[in-house]
Design a protein around this nucleic acid. Sequence first.
RNA 1: GCGGCUGUAGCUCAGCGGAUAGAGCAUCGGUCUUCGGAACCGAGGGUCGGGGGUUCGAAUCCCUCCAGCCGCACCA
Length: 582
Amino acid sequence: MTGRRWETVEVTSTYELLRGRLADAFDTFVPGADPVLRTSDHGDYQANGIMALAKQLGRAPRDVATELVARLDLGGLATVEIAGPGFLNLTLEPTLLSSQLRALVRDARLGVATSASPHTVVIDYSAPNVAKEMHVGHLRGTVIGDALARLYRFMGHTVIARNHVGDWGTPFGMLIEHLVDLGEDATAATLSIGDLDGFYRAARAKFDADDTFKDRSRRRVVALQAGDEETGRLWRVLVEQSVRYFSAVYEKLDITLAPSDVVGESYYNNMLEDVVRDLASAGLLVESDGARCVFAPGFTNREGEPLPLIVQKRDEGFGYAATDLAAVRDRVQQLHGDELLYVVGAPQAQHFEMVFSVARLARWLPEQVRCEHVIFGNVLGADRKMFKTRSGTTVKLVSLIDEAVERADATLVARGNDMALDERRALATQIARAAVKYADLSTERQRDSVFDLDRMVSFEGDTGPYLQYAHARLRSIFRRLPSAWDSEGVEFVLAHEAERSLAMGLLGFSDVVHGALTTLQPHRLCVYLFDLAQRLTSFYEACPVLTSQGALRDERLALCELTARTLALGLSLLGIEAPDQM
RNA sequence: GCGGCUGUAGCUCAGCGGAUAGAGCAUCGGUCUUCGGAACCGAGGGUCGGGGGUUCGAAUCCCUCCAGCCGCACCA
């Protein structure tokens, strides 16, 4: 399995193959009728569409089923039987399973075709604040956004990542003045060791306690907004240092965001006047209490009155609504995004609904451009409240990762790992990333999720490390192979139930990848991979590999190879590495 | 008050309008003198928050109520 060069083979998913045949038969009754094909416990698949079809025809379901089966040409792919009120239970023919598996063996992409209509996707995620620490709240969106970016890229789409960092606003007055007090070198030193919160808190403390500092800060904000050169230079120092720090965190987590993806709020400053102008000329802008607003239909405040999206404040300053509108406009007009995704927490749901709604009204957002707030839920502590430290402060993302690395390393040591120290530490880092990322990805996105470090770093149960271990176990088989071996041309008989079950799992990969992508739910891929790993361990237990002989040994090795590749590819799409040895 | 999200086993979570609601962890009980054992198999544990409705069929769709979290005019 080493050094093999895979080709790209067209593989129609088994599901699609069957669905096509069924749809043809259903069409002869009612054009376009859905066979409602699902995986099943009563066979490999079941089609549930008969009952609805019979209803529509006003006939008895079992009669329709009988007639439909007579017209159904499964072409030797599967056998079918009618069950219960009119279910069609389908069992795949061994020849189909074998040919499908042989195609997967040859295909570098394990049956996942690239998109027939590649387009440009702009994904907005992570978005930390300049001169502010990254904490667990940033973790989930960063991990989910990155997984989606990887999935889209894998499908052949062009991904433009946008890290919409908070780099503008009134706090920058005090931050810059604090920088001036500290000196640039000391500031750089503080920020580069990652003490962003210390810097921010110190600035805040002075601002609250010292009136002259407060005055300086206010003047500084004005200077910043007026484009004062020296102030701008100082501001850039803060931004650059922060971005450098963010990059270090991303590297620690193996997140694909690059400094060039950082396009902060300030980037849109020179577009805000145009935004206002466009809105005004579209007749959408309304002055209310001195602020310039757009009232999109369907939004009300707590008094039941229309709720405005405030584009320009009474003091003529722009709020974040203006920036977000400018960003939508920019992403369609300049970046030519066909799809805009915003991976942002649930609390901002209403804000984005309003922004998107106004963007449609203003015709910045054509109908054919998909624009979606990819909501994710809060990260909670064991007490089901927002995750905080005992002292009530937020938890630094880096210390959390470091802690996960220590736990992983401790486990390796306890298991008697004999790697060289730096090698072991590198492995512990890979495991820790898997632990943290998988925990964030494996539950349905919009649910709140409970943060539990002990559980996520565990090598048992539905965790990242467990999946990595399943993969590593497989790789160890191939290391133990006494001689060169190639999966090319292997026949799959699947005589043992555990082999067949594993094979069925392998054949479902492409469907799941598509499902995860179209629903923007990476957790579906997690559920699949864990299920595959469970099928694997059952197989592993029941079916000796290296000690079996001849064609059977080849077949089992090939199943192992396919499973290892599927686990590795699936994990990689989630942004999780699959080490060869653990 | 209005709106949004959530409510499934002790805990953490899957569940696509379909047949008997499933995993993991924890608990209890087994298996194997491991090829590769951080393994496997089994058991107990459920008014799917409550109540209506739609449907041949509802955890899933609709309505309503309850509980929790979040948002609701110039911070982002």
